[in-house]
Amino acid sequence: MASSDLEDLCFHINTKISTIKKTLQLRNIGQEPSLKSVLCKIGQEMVVLHDLLNKMETEVQQQKKLNALLKELQKSAEREQGEAQHLRENIPPHLPKPTQSSITGLTGKCEEQGKAAEPERAKKPIKEQRPIKEAALITAEEFESVPAYMKGRLTYDQINAVVQEMNKAVVGKYKILHQPLKSMSAPVRNLYHRFIEEETKDTKGEFFIVEADIKEFTQLKADKRFHSILNILRHCQRVREVRGSRLVRYVIC
């Protein structure tokens, strides 16, 4: 027999002997009256500990299920937000209102009057008003993608508050432009003429405002903080600038 095998056998036998000695010692300890109560308490504590471990394992499993459910809800909410944003950015134009001649035809007038109204409608088509375009709010994902040097200490809510105020200015301006000129008061007519003078070939068909409109329709101040937010809005493609005649026009994208 090789020496290594003999050493392994001796080690194995010594291990068994040591285990037997420890077992006999524990059995002897368990038979001592002074230690029986201690061993009994240890056994009770082990039972309680076992129950606690089982409860913890159950709680961990429930938390895992809840975490998976929350992730699914988050994905669903992100999908819904994306769809809502798409709908917001692609609102169909309003349908034209029915003409007086068509209403008259429906009330039961003769066919000849209906035919006579057809050429009149063809000569004077009703001008369809375009809906006023407003800038969409910045999403949380877009805010996170803005470089840190642009954001500084600006918050997500502060940026969207400025977007809402700018939209208020856009709506106020173009409601005036859509009014009949004869129905305007003198101050409103002055605003109307200023709006017309500020238009250029580059802003034709676009919705835009200038700093004077922001002062006219909102409480915003055109300060350094406001221009920092404008930089972020340009970065997120909510507005673009058109310069000319010493005037900066903020076109809604």
Rank of each mutant, 00 (worst) to 15 (best):
L35T: 15
I17V: 15
T15S: 13
I42E: 01
N14L: 13
V48N: 09
H50I: 02
L49A: 10
I20P: 00
S18E: 10
V38A: 07
L49T: 02
S37Q: 02
S18K: 11
L39T: 03
T15C: 09
S34Y: 05
T19F: 05
T23K: 06
E45A: 10
H50W: 01
I20E: 10
L35G: 00
Q25L: 12
E45F: 07
I29S: 07
C40G: 06
T19C: 04
Q44D: 11
I29F: 12
M46P: 05
V48M: 06
L39D: 02
E32Q: 15
G43R: 05
G30H: 03
E45N: 06
T19D: 07
N28V: 00
K36I: 10
L39W: 03
H50Y: 12
K22A: 09
L35M: 15
V48E: 15
R27C: 10
I17G: 01
L49V: 00
K41Q: 14
E32M: 13
H12M: 11
P33M: 04
L26F: 13
I42S: 07
L24W: 01
T15K: 09
S37K: 05
L26C: 08
I17N: 08
H50N: 15
H12K: 08
L24E: 04
T15I: 02
C10R: 12
S34K: 12
F11E: 14
I29Y: 11
G43K: 07
S18W: 00
K16N: 07
T23M: 09
C40Q: 14
L24S: 02
R27W: 07
V38D: 03
N28M: 01
T15E: 13
N28P: 00
P33H: 08
L24I: 01
G43D: 09
H12C: 13
E32W: 04
I29P: 11
M46I: 15
I20T: 13
F11Y: 04
